Simulated assay, not measured.
Amino acid sequence: MSLGAQWELHERFSFVQENVEPDLLLLDMRARPELRALWTALEARALLVTAALDAAGEDIARQLRAGSLSPARFREQWEGLGFTESAGRASTAADDWLEGLLRISRITTGQSRPPFGQVNMASRAHRISDFLSVTSPGQRDTVYDLGCGNGKFAITVAASCSARVKGVEYGQTYVESARRNGERFALPNLEFIHADVRDVDMSDGTSFYLYFPFWGEVAHAVARTLGDFARARDITVYAQGPRLDYGEHFLEQVSQGALCLAPERLDFTDVMVLRSAAFA
């Protein structure tokens, strides 16, 4: 069974186990004793799937640590699985593989949202692939993932190219999880920064990725900072999210002549690709 298929099963088992009330389960078992054997079998199967998932993930992590799995080959491995939506599930084979490797669920809760912050949602594999194609980051580049959450985008990009990748995250629980994940792969070009994005020196950045991490005042401040960078050097901003109270701040930098907006693309209508107007 593939790593992605193991992750799908793991998620299904986890959903059942996390949504069962122990007291109610005991009552059901007393009323129907045969349920105890079924529940025991489910728990045993879940443990087997988790062990297989751990082993498959560790094998890939070992290859990355040893340098035997190159960035190009790693990228080919997850992109080659495809981005077709699974029937009945908001996922793709590429997403299942990446999330199984990183042990990252699509939506992560348990962290209080800061003012103007959003619930953490892992980037879709199709968007990560598109970002890599649009920006073609290389050894001289520094990619910033602003509002990186638990690190799916940052880790995937760092393992898929030679650019320096820096994830910035305000939520302590998220950034600790991202760091633990990153340490498994020992990627020398990966760093996670626990800070308010407005307090971070991003002057070395050449590409900036944002998956609707914040809105309002924070989005306005970040767009203004990126506009200042764009006036001084060639940068690319890949911003995914709504135009209202988020995208409008980047479009303001377009109207002011700092950034220029690339034409909208059919498959990525929720994405704005912006580049330094002076260098376009």
Rank of each mutant, 00 (worst) to 15 (best):
F131K: 00
A125C: 03
P114A: 01
D95A: 07
Q118D: 06
G100N: 13
V134S: 02
A93G: 04
T108K: 07
S133D: 12
L98I: 11
R103H: 13
S112I: 08
Q118A: 14
G100A: 07
L101G: 08
D95L: 10
R113I: 08
N120D: 12
G117N: 11
I104D: 04
L98G: 10
A122R: 07
F116W: 13
H126I: 06
R106T: 14
F116R: 12
A125R: 01
N120R: 08
G117L: 01
Q118S: 11
N120T: 08
S112L: 12
G100M: 07
R106Y: 11
N120K: 02
D130M: 03
T92R: 03
D95S: 09
L132I: 07
T108G: 07
E99A: 03
S123M: 05
Q118G: 03
A93C: 08
S133C: 02
V134K: 00
E99T: 13
W97L: 05
P114W: 01
A94R: 03
I107Q: 12
A125Y: 04
P115D: 11
T109I: 10
G110K: 09
V119S: 09
R127S: 06
D130G: 03
I107D: 06
S112Y: 00
R127D: 02
A122K: 03
L98N: 11
D96E: 15
I128C: 00
I107N: 06
D130A: 03
I107C: 07
A94S: 15
P114S: 06
A94P: 09
H126A: 02
Q111M: 10
D96L: 15
F131G: 01
T92Y: 04
S105T: 14
R113M: 12
A122M: 09
D95K: 04
P115R: 12
I107W: 04
V134Y: 01
S91W: 03
L132A: 03
A94I: 10
R127E: 02
M121W: 13
W97E: 04
S91H: 01
S91D: 14
I128F: 00
Q111W: 00
F116Q: 11
I104Q: 09
V134E: 09
T108H: 11
R106A: 14
T108V: 13
R113V: 08
Q118W: 06
R127T: 00
N120Y: 15
S133I: 02
R106I: 14
G110P: 05
D95Y: 09
I107H: 12
G117T: 07
N120S: 14
S112D: 14
V134F: 00
D96W: 14
L98F: 09
S123V: 01
H126T: 04
V134W: 08
R106L: 14
L98A: 11
A93W: 05
S112M: 05
